Amino acid sequence: MQSIRFSLLFLPFVLLLSGLLPALAQETAKPASQCQMIAQALPEVVFARFALPAAELAQAQADGTVRITYIGHSTFFIETPGGIRIATDYNGWYKPPSLPTVVTMNKAHSNHYTLSPQPGIEHVLHGWRDDGAPADHDVVAGDAYIRNVPTDIRSWGGAMEENGNSIFIFEIAGLCIGHLGHLHHELTEKQYAEIGRLDILMVPVDGGLTMGAESMSRVVERLRSALILPMHRRGPPIDRFLTMFDEDFDVSFADTASVEVSIRSLPRRPTILVLKGV
């Protein structure tokens, strides 16, 4: 009799929870990443993702072509098949050809962000948080899904600032596109696992303002992207970065600042493509 009375008393809480859990799941759910993988080196770490209808629609079109244009410094302009426009490391100085739908920023230096973005930009994504906690973005904009992996940065005094920057990842038309931002350190196994597969990699090649060419080349070799787009070249010539790679990597120099890529047109061998203006 006592157990029946306890069950009846407990029933309202069960019903309450059963009503709350679906709503809670909707609030905390994140889009499903097609590019993120579980690192076998970390068998106890499981990166859980929950699919939302919007995310499924955003990543459903794998037949389209993505256009990537180098604007300057570390700013690329990404145009999706569905008409979404994304500017990386947007600082307001290097103007994209049209108003971006989404801009991403990193805090390392003033030429990687602006606190006064152009009006009309729908999503302004900072790679840092003012309270020092890791930035956490999971944004679906049209046919693009954008997420980030936080990294540390080196301050002007030389000390490392935890979670000061982010690697932004754009999942578009079946492609996994990663922008390393102002990367100041080699990545951890956990960060590699959170990044997952990258088909296209935007990498700083300044040789020291971010990381030395040798350290940066190790990151590039580990990620093993099909298409590597250098950026952020200040100081040493591009050849210094290119000499870090052996015959397993092809090198090509474009006569324009833009490239159009689809999942079917990716090069079969890892290729470093130097766009005009780098």
Rank of each mutant, 00 (worst) to 15 (best):
S225Q: 07
A108Q: 12
H179V: 11
G83S: 11
L180Y: 04
P150K: 07
F241D: 02
W128S: 03
Q61N: 15
V205I: 14
A173T: 13
R154M: 14
H184E: 02
R218M: 00
Q191M: 11
E56D: 14
V203T: 14
S18L: 09
R240N: 13
T101E: 04
F245R: 13
D152K: 09
D255E: 13
E161V: 13
D138Q: 03
S225Y: 06
H184N: 14
L266A: 11
A257D: 13
D199S: 05
L175A: 12
G235S: 08
I238M: 13
Y192S: 02
P22A: 00
V102Y: 08
G132R: 09
M211H: 07
L187K: 03
Q26I: 04
R218V: 00
H109R: 15
M244P: 01
D246V: 09
P237A: 00
D255Q: 15
E27S: 07
G64Q: 06
K95R: 15
D250M: 09
L180Q: 10
S166H: 10
K30Q: 15
N165G: 02
Y70M: 03
R197K: 15
L266C: 13
S116N: 08
I153D: 07
C176E: 02
T271P: 01
R224S: 06
L42T: 06
V124L: 03
E162Q: 10
H179S: 14
D138L: 00
Y90K: 12
E189F: 04
V251I: 09
E44L: 05
E221V: 04
I153G: 12
E194C: 05
I177T: 12
A25F: 04
L273R: 14
R264C: 03
S155I: 10
G72Y: 12
D248R: 15
A62T: 15
V251Q: 12
D255P: 01
L242K: 08
I195P: 06
Q26R: 07
Q36F: 02
S217C: 01
A173C: 05
F6M: 12
G178Q: 11
F76Q: 10
L15R: 04
R49L: 05
P204G: 08
L275K: 14
A87E: 02
V124F: 04
I195Q: 08
A62L: 09
P236I: 14
G132A: 08
L175R: 01
A48L: 14
Q36H: 00
A55P: 00
R129C: 08
V45G: 00
R147A: 01
G235C: 04
Q2D: 00
S33H: 05
R67S: 12
D130T: 11
I121V: 14
H73R: 15
L99Q: 09
Q26N: 06
E122N: 04
S18R: 09
V139R: 12
L180S: 05
L273K: 10
P100R: 13
R234N: 05
V278A: 13
L57I: 10
F168N: 07
D199T: 06
L9K: 09
T210V: 06
F249M: 06
Q191S: 11
R233I: 14
A25G: 01
H232E: 07
Q59A: 10
V251K: 15
L42E: 04
